[in-house]
Design a protein around this nucleic acid. Sequence first.
DNA 1: CCTATCATGTAATCCGTTACATGATTAT
DNA 2: ATAATCATGTAACGGATTACATGATAGG
Lengths: 169, 169
Amino acid sequence: MQDVRLTPTSYVVLGLIDQVGQATPYDLKRLVSISVGYFWSLQHAQLYSEPERLTRAGYLTEEREEGGRRRKRYALTERGREALAAWRAQPPDDLAELREPALLKLFFGADRKELATAQLEAHRRRLAEYEAVREQMPPRTPEGSRLTLEAGIRHEHTWIAFWREVAGG
Amino acid sequence: MQDVRLTPTSYVVLGLIDQVGQATPYDLKRLVSISVGYFWSLQHAQLYSEPERLTRAGYLTEEREEGGRRRKRYALTERGREALAAWRAQPPDDLAELREPALLKLFFGADRKELATAQLEAHRRRLAEYEAVREQMPPRTPEGSRLTLEAGIRHEHTWIAFWREVAGG
DNA sequence: CCTATCATGTAATCCGTTACATGATTAT
DNA sequence: ATAATCATGTAACGGATTACATGATAGG
């Protein structure tokens, strides 16, 4: 059993498997795309390699389906559950940075009007998607989903106001 | 001369060298820390490796100081200037994701009150820093700096409002 | 039927982070 | 003087992205 560093990716995998009990990499892919993927997306290839890593380190068990596609199906071990709980209870790490490519362009002298117009449209589209998701949220959606989506929506509003001013100035 | 993919890191290096004419890795480190570093920070080691990469691909020239520390000093080539201009003119890539670790914790069931309190304090501190920078901005600061800082400040406000409600609900 | 897209997975590459180092200044 | 921090750089590692592959399903 080998030591690995637990990254945010690790906790996404652990957290999702915790929510659903067990999952194949493809299950994880779909789960990510309808949940945390809105603010923290992952490449599908990582949903194959990351569970392997976590299994090597004793956080997950792996069992292969007999016959058919012989999928690998993962579940939490006790160690995995503990790691997840410890992470949840820890004070959060450093704050995220904006890391917005468009801001880099703005900083390095791109045409403001053009840039702002393109950004405005992209953010409006994204806001519309988020709002559509919110409308269709079933009644008993967990608070975590609801709140993270809410955070996303607010940031979209902030971006829209920002780029509108940049475009208009 | 070797092909390399140009990443955001590449454009930070190209953009900064474009602004100052020429720079050593250590110059770049300081430049980043007082400019784009507020929303797009880089490890100092990358400011050694990235210019090498860019030089291998013909975007920069490298010359070594004689004597002393024999620092490497980089400057843009024509190809580098063109690449930077092309990037500036391109429509922006995909929008950034929030990728906020605290949101992951919220999503996966961390204690809302505790989490929100910690985040509130961290964001308040960061907002104060940004505002201090804004106060001390010299008169003729380029619009790019001013606007990107403004974007940062607004997002901090958004976060503060969000976490305040999460804490209060 | 044939083609496009979805489902599912592995392998290779490489950028970014972390660890390691050491000479020069500054502070006490 | 000595410790601490700044200045400056290299090397190793590993997580994340990209490329490569192929069987299944659905649409036209």
